[in-house]
Design a protein around this nucleic acid. Structure first.
Length: 747
RNA sequence: GCCGCUGUAGCUCAGUGGUAGAGCGCACCCUUGGUAAGGGUGAGGUCACGGGUUCAAAUCCCGUCAGCGGCUCCA
């Protein structure tokens, strides 16, 4: 007979199996009323599992009752999960009511901010945003009807028969996978939905370990709407606080682009209408911060279709932001003993055949640049495209032998080896800076006493991102990494990783990015794809974990996420409105030394392979600036602002004094302009505020007489008072030098 | 790359087959105003590009390019 342990440690004994609802009632009527589900841990190693309130607890377990939040309280993640999972059913029913019963449902899980449901809309039918009002209305009705979610289970055979009779192959597929059967309807390249939650609607339709199929009816089975689903759900539709259909997108069945195209309908649900409204408001706020919108408004950058997709033109104002940021990072690097290098934007194909980038990653690179004479010769010879590709990708005997020997692997297969006169020479826009840096390291001899060698470059690289992926500054085809390669001895790896992290810490702290986390990518113990000695890996992984731990921010260890050549640390920052952005990485590399035959002389007077650490902690200047634009909503701290002070004469009688004020600021290296338009000062203030200028110095005859300026600071909607010009200049100068994130200059 | 939506003045957008529109911005004039938009006049468009249907196309159809929302991808 079950003994149930509650979250507070209390134990309750029952004579017979009880439902979670009965358990809640036995604790208190208030709890029973608020309960919408339960989290049950049978101690069977599966951990706590979310269950229906009606789920029977027939053996010893630890149980937490999931409740709808009390007024004013935030809903728990579990409560939202139950509501959203349930809202997905409500939305699906509403869509079938509005668009047609022949809309075939595929797959509908909760997500971080709501839920979606993938569905197939038959030819001739249409589902568009025009239907949203009707769908929302129908959803509200279903929620108001407060119909119970009723679970029932059937034997596999019976269930499959039922689904097949309904003619929905997607549900048949879900059921087959839930039962662990080979799929009879899906023959695509993916065996399962990768990376989605296993407790999804239809995604896992089996109940527990028993091979039965479960269905949920929204009301009475056989009478009301129902769906193959593993659950769990809230007890009834009325327990979904507020739900809304959000947007349409397309998706593929099983995320497989060669398979059926489905329509993905996004929706969201919250415990209360107020929470939903708050969420919608936040979304609006996020849209206002969009760096593409702000970037255009403040003229920070421009993308021109005549130049090309994903290629950023930094306008004068944006260039200032980027340059200041780069100078800041560069100064920190100098403190850490980095040395700066410059390398060109292209390199010979052989360089990338040596590094392994070409042709292995050719799909994400710009096409090779082939010399004109070679192209003309080939075309004269009537060379086919396929042959040309093979000859571009071919490798000389010498290079192949050297590479295979140094790496101890067959990195160049015999079919790629080609006679020298068959090879086509060419260049490539560089997709990474490391080959160039490796060559700089190799260009001079190194003693273990000189290690580590830290080569830093704001290096511009080019990658052929798919056109649909391009997005403002955050996903582009040409970008400048805050790149560096640390060539070090094995013993130096931990300290160097630490150094990278402390740099990140300093810079995030200065920019006021308080919330960030790191992901440590480790090798998958079951995979053989990794290269390098196990011992080195173990040490490097330990060093990464230790370094991450020492940061004092949340970090996760993610087995299987390592690069094939070494473990890595990724940085994810959270901006002021809670969105996460993946920035840069630190990666340990045991391969590059071999490929480029790098060495240093050890204390034993013998050559040793250096370990290489690749690090670009902010990823790219483009993405980082994009994130910063959104983080600050365009209102940069003074030291980063393209324009730091604007002088506003109240009439043209004060223009001369305004110019004098501006000159004094300019002489102190402050970025300043004066607004000599014939607008009234109110209008000038409005414009300067719109353009997010940190400080306004309003000057009239009164100020001119006494050598003063009247100060306004961004975000403060009033005149702060007057101060001596010299004092103002000094204060602004000091603020810039301090890189303070807040505006602190006051009279 | 794939699916859907979109493309009209520097920006934001109206205009559904019959002479191209607004607000902001810009230029000039008046106004000389002390803290979040003073007034007037004016310039500015091959309606993304190419083709088609039509007496007539910004508008309808096809294609291309680009942007947006997703999917897939991301060394």
């Amino acid at each position: 007979m079950p003994t149930i342990t509650l979250p507070n440690g209390d134990k309750k004994n029952f004579e017979k199996p009880v439902s979670a609802a009965e358990l809640a009632a036995s604790i208190g009527s208030g709890l029973a009323k608020a309960a919408i589900g339960a989290k049950v841990d049978f101690g069977d190693g599966q951990g706590p599992q979310l269950r229906d309130l009606g789920a029977l607890i027939d053996r010893d377990a630890t149980v937490a009752i999931i409740t709808a939040p009390k007024p004013g309280q935030a809903a728990s993640a579990d409560a939202l999960y139950l509501m959203r999972h349930s809202a997905a059913h409500v939305m699906a029913e509403a869509i079938q009511d509005v668009v047609g019963k022949d809309v075939m449902l595929a797959y509908g899980p909760p997500t971080d901010t709501g839920f979606f449901y993938d569905m197939f809309v038959p030819a001739g039918k249409k589902l568009s945003t025009d239907h949203f009002a009707a769908i929302d209305k129908r959803m509200s009705e279903i929620i108001a009807e407060n119909r119970p979610f009723v679970r029932y289970e059937v034997a596999p055979g019976e269930g499959m028969q039922k689904l097949k009779a309904e003619g929905n192959k997607y549900k048949v597929d879900n059921a087959e996978r839930a039962l662990g059967l080979p799929s009879t309807v899906y023959h695509g390249k993916k065996a399962a939905f990768a990376g989605v939650d296993s407790a999804s609607t239809g995604g896992q339709a089996a109940s527990g370990t028993g091979a039965r199929l479960s269905f949920y009816a929204t009301g009475s089975p056989g009478k009301n709407w129902e769906d193959l689903c593993r659950g769990p759900h809230v007890p009834s539709t009325g327990r979904i606080g507020a739900a809304k259909v959000m947007s349409l997108a397309s998706s593929y069945w099983h995320g497989d682009e060669t398979s059926d195209r489905l329509i993905r309908v996004y929706g969201t649900a919250f415990a209360t209408q107020a929470d939903l409204d708050e969420f919608l408001k936040q979304k609006e706020e996020a849209a206002k911060r969009d760096h593409r919108v702000i970037g255009r408004h403040l003229r920070l950058f421009h993308i021109d279709e005549d130049v090309g997709q994903g290629l950023i033109l930094w306008t004068p104002k944006g260039s200032i932001v980027r340059k200041e940021l780069q100078a800041f990072i560069a100064a920190e690097l100098k403190k850490q003993g980095y040395t700066e290098v410059f390398t060109p934007h292209i390199g010979r194909l052989d360089l990338y055949k040596t590094s392994g980038h070409f042709p292995y990653y050719k799909d994400s690179q710009f096409a090779p640049i082939i010399e004109r004479e070679a192209l003309e010769q080939l075309s004269k010879e009537g060379c086919s495209c396929a042959e040309m590709m093979a000859r571009v990708e071919g490798v000389s005997q010498r290079l192949a032998e050297g590479l295979n020997h140094r790496t101890g692997l067959t990195v160049i297969t015999p079919d790629r080896v080609m006679a020298d006169d068959k090879l086509i020479e060419g260049f490539m826009l560089k997709p990474m800076n490391c080959p160039h840096h490796a060559k700089i390291f190799a260009s001079s001899p190194h003693s273990y006493r000189d290690m580590p060698v830290r080569l830093a470059e704001f290096g511009t690289v080019y990658r052929w991102e798919q056109s649909g992926e391009l997005n403002g500054l955050t996903r582009v085809r040409g970008f400048t990494q805050d790149d560096a390669h640390l060539f070090c001895t094995e013993e130096q790896v931990p300290a160097e990783i630490q150094g990278c992290l402390s740099l990140v810490k300093t810079i995030f702290a200065t920019l006021g990015m308080k919330e960030y986390r790191v992901r440590v990518g480790l090798r998958d113990p079951d995979s053989a794809k990794y290269t390098g000695a196990k011992e080195g890996w173990d040490k490097a992984e330990a060093a990464c974990i230790e370094a991450a731990r020492s940061l004092g921010v949340p970090f996760s260890q993610e087995p299987g996420e390592a690069a094939f050549y070494g473990p890595k640390i990724d940085f994810v920052v959270k901006d002021v409105i809670g969105r996460e952005w993946q920035l840069g990485t630190v990666q340990v590399d045991y391969i590059m030394g071999n490929r480029f035959d790098l060495s240093y002389t050890g204390p034993d007077n013998k050559p040793h392979r250096p370990v290489v650490i690749h690090r670009a902690p902010f990823g790219s200047m483009e993405r980082f600036c994009g994130v910063l634009i959104e983080h600050f909503a365009g209102a940069f701290p003074t030291w980063l602002s393209p324009e730091q002070v604007r002088v506003l004469p109240i009439s043209d009688k004060s223009n001369e004094y305004a110019e004098k004020v501006a000159a004094a600021l300019r002489a102190a290296d402050v970025r300043v302009s004066s607004d000599l338009s014939n607008d009234r000062v109110q209008a000038k203030i409005k414009v300067a505020a719109d353009e997010k200028v940190p400080y306004m110095a309003v000057v009239g005859p009164r100020d001119a007489e006494q050598g003063m300026v009247s100060v306004r600071a961004r975000g403060v909607e009033k005149d702060l008072g007057a101060m001596k010009l010299e004092a103002f200049v000094e204060a602004v100068k000091a603020e810039i030098a301090s890189k303070r994130a807040e505006l602190g200059v006051r009279p």
